[in-house]
Design a protein around this nucleic acid. Sequence first.
DNA 1: GCCGTTTTCGGCCCGACTGTTTTCAGTCG
Length: 570
Amino acid sequence: MKNSEIASIFDRMADILEFKGELIFKINAYRKASRVLLEGAEDIEILAAQNRLGELPGIGKAIQEKILEYLREKRIAKYEELLATVPRELFELLSIPNYGPKTAALAYRELGIETLQDLKAAIDKGSLRDLPGMGDRKVEKIRQGIELRESASERISIGIALPIVEEVISYLRATGGDRILQIAPAGSVRRFRETVHDIDVLVETAVSAEIIRLFTEMPQVTRILAAGETKGSVLLDDRFQVDLRAVSPGSFGAALQYFTGSKEHNVRLRELARKKGLKINEYGVFAGEDKVAGEDEEALYAYLGMAWIAPELREDRGEIEAAVAQHLPNLVHLNELLGDLHIHSNQSDGHLTLEDMAAAVRARGYRYMAFCDHSQSAFYANGLSSDRLQHSKETIARLNEKWDDFVVLAGAEVEILADGRLDYSDEILKELDFVVASIHSGFKSDPTGRTIAAMQNPYIDLIGHPTGRLISRRKGLEIDLDKVIESAVLTGTALEVNSSWDRLDLQELHIKNAIEAGAKICINTDAHDSSQLDQMQFGVATARRGWATAKDVINTLSLERLKKWQKRNR
DNA sequence: GCCGTTTTCGGCCCGACTGTTTTCAGTCG
């Protein structure tokens, strides 16, 4: 799909226009167009061929022409023209905190700063300091910005961010005592985005300055980025940026709504409020001078005539319209999952015995689980030969005699081999209770065709981590998910939402597409140790971000109904 | 540059913090 290519050009055009001091609304138009292209499920080439570009919100005449130009000529003349008039490393420069478009333009005009190297040299020489409106402190901020960009530029995975936010909250609760009336995560952490840029916490207190001070004095703080009356921003361990906002009693709901975002969701919400003659800010909903809502989120949304929207949905992807129409999906909840269908033991590369791991899963309150250890070709993971698989099955059969409230399914995570075959014969597969098929090698050799071939095997119930991406390390397969989803629907094979916070694969937008197409998903931990069973919350949150309800998720089924589902699709 | 049960022209979300300022611009979220 060309969507992301064009989206990134529009984003860069917005950056350039901002650098050149264009009207902010024009800039925002390009940014919005970029987002619509990136998040729209539909292939821009297909839309263009059907003459339907104008149906996309925020895509007007001028932008349509640029899209068509790109599809025709693989370039956009206007973009290239603009590019020639700005610093060579403009986009890198603009990514430096505290070095925005205005400053970059001034430094380019007066000092000819085109690159990061130029900028560093101008700081060292003192020439940046001599520019109008500059002072020692501003230059120091920019210097720190460069440092920050070079050390802490990576986005933080939700699995790292959540424990940090919990630590900050418990620290503030402990030190702030009853001065803290309410405290909660906000921002992208509360929305459970797969990665976050910084970590937001919101506190309700009558003594905000005191709480901000406690916050900036936390032992893990290595740098204070800002500290005012109601807002503090720090760097923890030189890596994680945490922002604390403090609000006075009565405004917590409005502030929580506001600081949870997303920005796009909030913009839409405020537009909607304006049309009703209301104003929303972080202190409440106002009709003229009168505050009409603000203490809690539910009341705020209700006052705007809409249902409360789960934070995971707040991305302006249709949730506002759905909330107004009272048609929000009833999102799947962690406690609706009755089983975890992708678990490893020390028979392959897990850490616990079958018995200990099964006991740990049962202790989480599940009704069933499936051991899906690796298959024979997965040497790196101590994959099971057919003899060892048979041995595992016998152990599992004995385990099942122990419990009458919990069933252990004997399964496998069978390799989809590089040549497209599966790593166990059909004779072996058909004797298993649940089979996941996954790609762990041969990433380049036709992953789409191999995945589809695996789905056509009647004994494959689930495709494990379909794209193979690792959030912090690997981009993932070049796989045509539209085709995979289509085949999943045809063959009745489920697609995994792998809860491991480094995978979260399928991703939220793929989940939404899959569900809309009628495919089923299965949320699993892929746990190799008992502690990893906790990661289910990330998979559930990701599924919720993909608008999944319980009926879309096969492991919300009772075991009996799960077996019926399998039988129908085998 | 986009968009319209207030509008085809005139709007376009809102506020905190910082630093360099005699009243505000730039940056950020």
